[in-house]
Design a protein around this nucleic acid. Structure first.
Length: 192
DNA sequence: TCACTGATCGTCT
DNA sequence: GACGATCAGTGAG
């Protein structure tokens, strides 16, 4: 995928990324998911990691759109965002869930007790299954490398809801997901 | 299926 | 020193 194909707006990008393919290569093999759920964290958004200022941790959010921001949370999990604005503006799209389309066996090795439906159903699970970690932070997802984006089948219908797991700006409708996908995370009533 | 809880540690106050 | 853009396990309805 080329950068010019990525919408130059956080919300537009969050919707655009639904259906696209995220590929991760490692010594253990290749994994790929089709993205079915995203959340936008926009410029000036109190819930965003980039809200206060640029720091060593969140600097990848300030790269121009199409770069990976990988962060460590709750002492245990990684999550991945795609930076979504021009250089110097901190914003991103959290990749919350996907359906495995390549490397299912490897993902099951990394998440031995997960069912097929649960493999990448949540941002921490997705990162674990795909082997995404700190080393991927700051990578450009539209150039050759171990982590990149490819075109996929767009969703038939996109639904919207509030974002999950945040306390600030909790009413903003900035979560997007593919209607009827069984691979979407979150409470069932939010998804209906 | 939902609600609640403990685990665990890097980051910023 | 407090607090997460989370998850797995447990128990109730």
């Amino acid at each position: 995928m080329r950068r010019a194909e990525l919408p130059a707006d956080s919300v537009d990008l969050a919707r655009f990324l639904l259906g696209t393919i995220l590929v991760c290569d490692s010594a253990a093999g290749r994994c790929a998911i089709r993205i079915v759920e995203t959340e936008a964290y926009t410029p000036g958004d109190p819930a965003a990691h980039a809200y206060r200022r640029e720091t060593a941790r969140n600097r990848s959010l300030f790269l121009r759109r199409g770069h990976a921001y990988v962060y460590f949370i709750y002492g245990m999990y990684y999550c991945i965002n795609v930076s979504s604005e021009v250089a110097g503006v901190g914003a991103g799209v959290l990749v919350r869930a996907g359906e495995a389309v390549a490397g299912r066996e490897l993902m099951h090795v990394r998440r031995p007790h997960a069912s097929a439906l649960d493999l990448c159903r949540g941002p921490g699970k997705l990162a674990t299954a795909m082997g995404i970690a700190r080393i991927h932070d700051g990578l450009d997802l539209v150039v050759p490398g171990p982590l990149w984006l490819a075109a996929g089948v767009p969703p038939r219908e996109i639904r919207t809801s509030v974002r999950i797991g945040i306390t600030k700006a909790a009413d903003s409708l900035l979560r997007f997901y593919e209607a009827d996908s069984p691979f979407v995370s979150g409470p069932r009533k939010l998804n209906s």
